[in-house]
């Protein structure tokens, strides 16, 4: 089943360079899709288009169509200026490369998304806190210090908190942009394990920080090079059996 369909998408930043050209790809529901490729390929830009975070960047123009098929049967035209971006961002949540915790307590970080959405019931908020921390494999480590500042956590814990923070809102899609690039191998494997666990309920789009990570987690993979989508294929195929020479060079480590 397709969760997000991207058709003929173009994006140009205000410096005039076309950073994404004619991207057409379907993102399957309840699976991990990875966008990989060398630096500057446009992976982050595409990810940010999916929840309209590009609205905050110096984007000159976008064209094409991106549709999200909601669990309730509704279709959202993501690029439509009329689309309610706040509602969209509650459905499509983002975890960034650098773990940015808000200057609040651990609990405050987790309930933030729900509170701004208007949820006030303490019991529901409490449930969301525990559930999301469990899913991000952080519950045991922080359950006794939920009211401490989030900034006191280690880098790896902070990044899992950021993942939990997205999960707490029960979005339908989670975007992760090199979420483990600053983490040690142990924290990295914890994050990857969480992703494997939650992928049955969420659509996950991941920009991996290495080809190895991509190969480990990808159900579907897409290779981006200088603003173009070179090749997309189900998980292992792209790594074992790439059809394009450039993809092959990249996954075999000849550049990047």
């Amino acid at each position: 089943m397709v969760k997000i369909s991207i058709e003929h998408f173009h994006l140009t930043y205000s410096d005039g360079a076309e950073s994404l050209r004619d991207i057409t790809i379907d993102i399957p529901a309840r699976a991990i899709s990875v966008f990989l490729g060398p630096a500057g390929g446009g992976k982050s830009s595409l990810l940010r288009a999916l929840n309209r975070l590009n609205d905050l960047a110096d984007v000159r123009s976008v064209s094409g169509q991106i549709r999200l098929f909601g669990d309730n049967g509704q279709t959202i035209d993501i690029l439509d200026p009329q689309t309610d971006v706040v509602a969209l961002r509650r459905l499509v949540s983002m975890v960034f490369a650098r773990p940015v915790t808000l200057p609040l307590s651990i609990r405050g970080n987790l309930t933030y998304g729900l509170e701004v959405a208007g949820m006030r019931q303490n019991n529901l908020l409490g449930e969301a806190v525990e559930r999301s921390l469990q899913q991000a494999a952080l519950w045991e480590e922080v359950k006794d210090r939920l009211d401490e500042p989030a900034a006191a956590l280690s880098g790896g814990q902070q990044q899992r908190l950021c993942l939990a923070r997205s999960l707490a809102m029960q979005p339908e899609v989670i975007l992760l942009d090199e979420p483990t690039s600053g983490l040690d191998p142990i924290s990295t494997s914890k994050v990857e394990a969480s992703l494997q666990e939650i992928k049955n309920n969420y659509t996950i789009v991941l920009v991996p920080h290495s080809v190895q990570q991509a190969a480990r987690v990808a159900d579907h993979a897409a290779f981006f090079l200088q603003g173009e989508l070179i090749e997309a294929a189900p998980g292992p195929n792209l790594f074992i059996n790439p059809t394009d020479k450039r993809t092959q060079d990249y996954v075999e480590g000849r550049f990047g």
Binding site: D84, V86, A87, L114, G118, M169
Partner: peptide, 9 residues
């Protein structure tokens, strides 16, 4: 999450 937000707007 289905929350009625036009009021918020």
């Amino acid at each position: 999450m289905k929350i009625f937000i036009s009021q918020l707007f």
